[in-house]
Amino acid sequence: MHEYSIVEALVDRVAAEARARHATAVHRLSVRIGELSGVDVGLLTTAFAIFRDRTICESADLEVQSVPARWECPDCGGVVGPGTMLRCVRCGAPARLAAGDEIVLDRIEMEVA
């Protein structure tokens, strides 16, 4: 359950930003989690609810945007369906993961004095 370490890194990053901006509270975090990132959104949410206690994120909501996996052909741009052979049906090139591996902090809403 590495989601705890992800949350730890997230809260550390947010705390650094909050310190730099002299924030008094953090209200909301927006993160993007890809389907093939290896992070489970449910576990991440649970881990955040536990870990945020006694941190600057104590009263913060975690907004998670899930990103579906999207494979495409690097040569012709054709879409390759997930669950199929990861090769372009038109030109045979190995597919490239165009979206779905994100573990990204997008936005922090905080209160500054």
Binding site: R13, E17, R21, R107, I108, E111
Partner: peptide
């Protein structure tokens, strides 16, 4: 305030 970060966690 909203701060845009767009950084890998």
């Amino acid at each position: 305030v909203a701060v845009d970060v767009h950084e890998k966690i």
